[in-house]
């Protein structure tokens, strides 16, 4: 057991300040364990959102020493013994209290996405897909909606362009639908205009912070950008569509 120093942001949307804490930490603890110990022993009113403690529910997203992380998956031995650990709420979303932010903007974006629309069933009355057709979209289904990618995306975080860009999480959702072998809906015009694929300048921070290691940029956003190019920016394909009608 060793004593460690924490700075935890305390406050609401109206304002706040960092609270200083020194607390004993046991071997094997993660940051969320320490926050719970601080909550139990020193700050009973500390607000934290958490649930599974296993990196699967995406609830305990916060910024730890400046990096968006899941508190339940951030081991204490990641930090030097004398290092003060600073814990803050997500920057991209409004603070409700302490480490809890209002992420409801994301739920609103999700509702805007045209849902899965499968084509007709096969002659045997079943939908059938080969494994190699679903491998690609299964990667996207790993998303736990922790919104760390949304938090680190500078378009949402620093450029205040929530009006124009839906964010990496929902580009991934769009990719999972667009690349689905059974889906028949066409979302590409919306990917470009309503969801703002052109606002992503592919700096890959979303991929770096993803706790599920989804290749958000390479497998989701860039393929969507290329599909937008097919439709709107490739003059030869445009000419081909004009001449051959497809």
């Amino acid at each position: 057991m060793s004593e460690r120093a924490f700075r935890i942001w305390r406050g609401t949307a109206a304002g706040g300040e960092f609270g200083e804490h020194r607390i004993d930490v046991d071997e094997g603890m993660v940051v969320l364990d320490v926050l719970h110990r601080i909550q139990a022993k020193q700050a009973n009113d500390l607000a934290i959102r958490w649930n599974c403690k296993a990196g699967k529910c995406g609830s305990c997203s916060m910024e730890i020493n400046g990096r968006p992380r899941l508190a339940c998956m951030t081991r204490m031995n990641l930090f030097a013994d004398r290092e003060t650990i600073t814990v803050q709420p997500l920057k991209a979303f409004p603070v409700i209290r302490d480490l809890v932010t209002d992420v409801s903007w994301n739920f609103e974006q999700n509702k805007r996405i045209p849902p899965f629309r499968p084509g007709p069933k096969g002659s045997d009355g079943q939908y059938r897909m080969h494994q190699k057709d679903v491998d690609r979209v299964q990667e996207f289904r790993k998303c736990i909606e922790c919104y760390l990618c949304q938090d680190v995306c500078h378009v949402l975080r620093d450029q205040s362009r929530k009006d124009a860009f839906v964010g990496p999480r929902f580009m991934i959702r769009l990719a999972s639908l667009e690349m689905h072998p059974l889906d028949t809906a066409d979302r590409i015009p919306a990917v470009r205009k309503e969801f703002g694929s052109g606002f992503c300048n592919i700096t890959r921070c979303c991929t770096e912070v993803c706790p599920e290691h989804i290749e958000i940029t390479d497998n989701g956003i860039i393929p969507l950008k290329e599909r937008v190019v097919d439709r709107f920016y490739d003059p030869l394909l445009w000419l081909g569509r004009k001449i051959f009608g497809r």
């Binding site: 968006p68 680190v152 975080r157 860009f165 052109g198 606002f199």
Partner: peptide, 20 residues
């Protein structure tokens, strides 16, 4: 510097348009 690093403040500028 748009942005210089992940979770690092970008170069201040006008209204961001990305690749549009």
């Amino acid at each position: 510097g748009t942005p210089p690093g992940c979770a690092v403040g970008p170069v201040p500028g006008g209204r961001y348009r990305g690749e549009t």
